[in-house]
Design a protein around this nucleic acid. Structure first.
Lengths: 201, 201
DNA sequence: CCGATGAATGAACGATCGTTCAGGTACGAG
DNA sequence: CTCGTACCTGAACGATCGTTCATTCATCGG
């Protein structure tokens, strides 16, 4: 369990980093925002870098956990599995907006070890999508002639949500997720097995 | 015409900003990379901020010029027009990779006037897409039930190219553009007028 | 020949940054 | 009571940052 002071510092860093960017954010402003002294931060964290690490790590783990759960609940159909992954990704990008923007734009500022972790995770995440799209194409339910580009497109679409979504918009996170599931399935040209390959009237 | 020294400075800034990010890049490193003294830069530019401004402005104008030309060559069909816009955007993101990443991730660092310009341009760019998608839906050639999200998806797909594309890859820029045109038309569910609304065998 | 202009330089200034340090409370265990 | 530990503080350090300044050198029109 993290103490109240530590939590306040992490929250302040979250907002400062997101608003100014890692390099431009000052730990003095972070401490001021958290309502503690500058040196209090060094009691909990070894430095500015570790603040970034903590934020990115926490939210990254939450994402993979969410993916795991969604995939577990999904069946064997690639369409279902892709939908599960898109749902998890949309929810993550919308609910962890600030951390998402941080991860997507400030990876330059990470330490070497941190960057390695991050790239491995990004690779793993991309692989989950890749595997599912590949399976769908093999099984003939995804008709896209460009599986790699379609996959990249789906991921890019979902990632971009972090840049424009705001709480209290016209769509709830769940509605947004379902809408993006639709778009993703369109992009990979999903045609459920057993159905006639023609368009509904 | 810009002199050789000025051009070298701009080139150095382009790479330094892209590699380290605007805030983390130092003008001393930029000057060193350009092979000129620190103060030589202040002979051409009023400061660090103007370097960013010059880079973003130059490439932004090139983008809109490219869009204008492509749209001019396109006909009236929304499919053709969307294809033209996607082509221009993909080419821009691939050929102006560094400036693209700068614009997409470092808008926080812009001055107030600069940011206003940038947001207006982004708005105008988004409006071009929006108008075309709207027309396509009205004319019944774009069948997507979610025009706004499809448009955002197309733009996000194209923008993401700046993050992964490298010169000398397996696809040329033109091939990449045509592929993304295909994907974009799939995403808006383009069904050319006059054709039967069923799938080809 | 001369003065103006453009190009370029090294040294310095003030500010801010991340970090460290020495110390001060509050509190529970012995 | 006392010691240790967790929590927190203000002050300072060294480095780097963006920027400015005084100056030099070359070029060229008059």
């Amino acid at each position: 369990m993290r103490g109240a002071g530590q939590q306040a510092i992490l929250e302040a860093a979250r907002h400062e980093f997101a608003e100014r960017g890692y390099a431009a954010a000052s730990i003095r402003d972070i401490a001021r925002r958290a309502g503690v002294s500058l040196s209090a931060m060094y009691h909990y964290y070894t430095g500015k870098q570790e603040l970034l690490h903590a934020l990115v790590n926490d939210s990254g783990q939450a994402y993979f956990e969410s993916c795991r759960k969604e995939l577990e609940a999904a069946g064997d159909d690639p369409g279902e599995r892709l939908a599960a992954l898109v749902r998890a990704t949309v929810r993550y990008r919308a609910e962890y907006r600030l951390e998402s923007s941080l991860t997507l734009t400030e990876w330059r500022s990470m330490s070497e070890a941190q960057l390695e972790d991050f790239q491995r995770r990004q690779f793993d995440g991309s692989r989950m999508f890749q595997q599912i799209v590949e399976d769908g194409v093999d099984q003939g339910v995804f008709r896209t002639p460009h599986p790699d580009d379609a996959r990249r497109g789906v991921i890019a679409m979902c990632n971009a949500i972090a840049q424009w979504y705001r709480e209290g918009g016209e769509l709830s996170v769940d509605e947004l997720a379902e809408r993006y599931v639709e778009l993703a399935l369109v992009l990979v040209e999903y045609r459920p097995a057993g159905r006639r390959p023609r368009h509904p009237a």
